[in-house]
Design a binder for these strands. Sequence first.
DNA 1: GAAAGGAGTGAATCACGATTCATTTGTTGT
DNA 2: ACAACAAATGAATCGTGATTCACTCCTTTC
Lengths: 211, 211
Amino acid sequence: MAYRETEMMRERKAQARQRIIECAWESVTTGGFRSARITQIASMAGVATGSIYRHFESREELFAEMFRLATQHEVDRVAQALTGPETAAQQLENALRLFAERALRAPTRAWALIAEPVDPKLDEERLVYRRAFARLFEGAIRDGVLDGSLPEQNARLASTSLVGAIAESLIGPLAQASPEPCEAADLKPNELVDAIMQFCMQGLTGTRSQP
Amino acid sequence: MAYRETEMMRERKAQARQRIIECAWESVTTGGFRSARITQIASMAGVATGSIYRHFESREELFAEMFRLATQHEVDRVAQALTGPETAAQQLENALRLFAERALRAPTRAWALIAEPVDPKLDEERLVYRRAFARLFEGAIRDGVLDGSLPEQNARLASTSLVGAIAESLIGPLAQASPEPCEAADLKPNELVDAIMQFCMQGLTGTRSQP
DNA sequence: GAAAGGAGTGAATCACGATTCATTTGTTGT
DNA sequence: ACAACAAATGAATCGTGATTCACTCCTTTC
């Protein structure tokens, strides 16, 4: 017999796979799932169209995998903000702010992650993404209730509402085109974030901040 | 010469047009824009495929028109709730609750109206829809600030956040399949609505309700 | 260096649905 | 009843883009 997959080959394939995912992500970040073409991704990655299918079952599968990775990255970022010496409420505010700012900085990406619908497989992944965030925020809210920085409440629902309020505030205005982001409510980006945060924190604490 | 469009014919055409829109709406309500096929809509309406194009420039155009009508209907419903003898804050709560309940009762329709992306023409219409709601809620918030039932705040942004919080809370969990709606946060539908409303009203008033 | 596979290629195929258009079926006025 | 025209039809066409596959190119092993 001859040819047994060697370490070098495994490595090389893994790299190609990685490259494909990265290009897919770039394509999605630029124009959303809708306009991401397999053909174009292939040529970006410097491989033939058919080669994509050596690495992924289908277009769906490629996007699902890509989504999984991007999502994990984003969740990790936000999770980081949920550690530190501050009160849980303060940590949560930081995390929410980070979430909002990141979304605002890359609207097309945010849209793709949060809302753009593609196909059932992707929706499934998105659900996981949502749950990951929900769980994150939910935990922080529970902590806040324990350390007294937040009042008693339904943590699960509050966390969902938070994500929703932020996403809508950012994405609603930003969904269409990315060229001239943000003019929602006639505010500058950071003012927008501030205002969103005020609403969210009031919703959580039931206490007026900065009257 | 002969044949000049008569009243009866005009009527008949208008009816067909109406029927087509209704069937399109039913189709969208059932499976979302994505799965609404012109062919199927035609057969539902009892006309030939080609006849659709006697009434509408294109698929896009049909959906846009349909969307416009559905939207108007929905907005009118909610606007109704914003009249009455109660404080503006109370009216707003009623309106929000109505919005949430209606969405909860027909998740696929709500999804189609609020979030499902289709094409640029539709997105434009959706923007109008969002603005209509925003304006509605915004006005109510302004009134609330005036009559003292709500504290000073950025009405525009608060209204956006409200729509977002509600939409996410409802649609996030309900987006996928309509068969078994609602088990979000392990709550029954009306409990879900109650919890959302609490969050929203706290966000608006900065006051803890039902501690 | 030659056999034995695996990996890569990309033009051809296929699927799917919107749209068209030659033809048929009314409708109207005389 | 007939001319003149509009409306309706739906099978055929077209466009788009994912997916395939017969073939070539590389690696590995002996």
